[in-house]
Structures are given as C-alpha cells and as structure tokens.
Amino acid sequence: MALLEVGSVNAFYGAVHALKGVSLAVEKGEILTLIGGNGAGKTTTLRAISGMVRPRNGTVKFDGQDITGTPPNELVGRGLVHVPEGRGIFANLTVAENLELGAYTRHDRAGIAADLERAFELFPRVKERQKQLAGTLSGGEQQMVAIARALLARPKLLLLDEPSLGLAPQLVATIFSIIREINRQGVTILLVEQNANMALKVAHRAVVLEVGQVAMSGNAADLASSDAVKKAYLGH
C-alpha cells in the first residue's frame, strides 16, 4: 500500500480551478518528483496534501488514514511534514529556535537531541549558525535550515517545494545530494521542482502536471528520456 494516495482531488484558488482531478501515489521509501510549468498546480497539490488548501472534492490518504482537509498542524505529529516554497524560515528567530520549532509536537528530549545531531551531520553549516537570526543567513543556508528543521519532526513523508529555487548551481547540487541522503536514511520524499533536470536525476519516479492535471507519470529515468518531456521541461 502506498504511503500517500491522492485520489482525483479538485481544488480552487479563489475562482481559479487549480487542481482538476489530480491522482497520484507515493510509495514508501521512494522519491517522487512532481514537475511541470508555472501554474501547473504543483504547489497547490502539496498544499492540498498538507491541509493548507481544503480540496473541493477527492481524497487524500496518508499511512492508511483519510486526511482530506485535516489542518496541517495535526499532520506534523503523524509524520507528514511540508517544507513550503520560499523556505518558510522564521527570519525573526534564531537558527536554533527555528530548529526547536521543527520538533514542536515532540516531547522526547533524547530523541530530539539525537535527531538534531543527525541533522547537523547533514548540514554542518547550520550547526555553526545556530545563534544567528535566521533572516541573516544566505538563501542556501536558509534552505538548509528549512530542511534540517523538517527532519526534526521525524517525518515519514517529506514534502519539499522547490528546494533549489534561487540557489547557485553549486548549492543546487549539494541540496539534491542531501535530499538523496535523507531518502537513503528512510524518509519518503515528494519533491516539487521547476528544475526538472536535477529532479529527474534524484527521483525514482516522476509525475508531470499540466494545468492542474496529470499529463504523464512513470519512472524518472524513462521520463527523462521521453521526447515530450525533453522538449517541454528539459530544454533539449
């Protein structure tokens, strides 16, 4: 059984029909990437899953339970963690406080400390910056804080929205290798990316969204070599 099942979800942004019956499934242990152009509904799909947008109809099932329309704060404790687009760090808090909020719903001090150490292994830069206000960090560092913070919630499924947005190419490569490492440690990942090239390289499977509908889906490697995808998203 898939860890996450999205069944023909329709969602609106005001009057805009943003999702027109989107269905997809994320299997335990994989990286599924959601690619597509601007306004294809990638971010809305993530928001519908994490409860920030209430679907008009359709179902979202996580870990065997129906979570359609459940507010996001109730999903964090169940292991569904969403890192929003534009990093969503709290610029007015220190890095340490940002990380502390990642573990907001947890009460096992020892477990949190262990997870913090693990996050610092992945992001040594974050460890150095703990006392700094998060708003003073560079874009790449902020993204690292956002992902490290998400890991402190001990996610089963991590929703990543455009983690490479606005980062220097070198940093993009670093972030993607870390994403792969996190996945290797057992976290299932649903990755939304505009940078289809990189996304298809790290993901196991991919779903292509076009104006609120699933246009294609399949193996990431297969899609990367398909002519339609190459033409539309990979710029070949």
Binding site: S50, M52, P71, P72, N73, E74, V76, G77, V81, H82, V83, P84, G88, I89, F90, A91, N92, L93, E97, E100, L101, G102, Y104, T105, R149, A153
Partner: peptide, 21 residues
C-alpha cells in the same frame, strides 16, 4: 516553546502551522 510559537506566528502564520503549532 510557547513563546517561540508566538513569535513564529507573528512572523508567518502559515509556516507556523506547518510546524505543528
């Protein structure tokens, strides 16, 4: 922790919700 949550909400309500607050 509660105070940190208050300051987080003050910065961004949506993201605060994504922390489980």
């Amino acid at each position: 922790k509660l105070g940190t949550a208050m300051r987080a909400i003050s910065y961004n309500v949506e993201t605060a919700q994504l922390m489980g607050i």
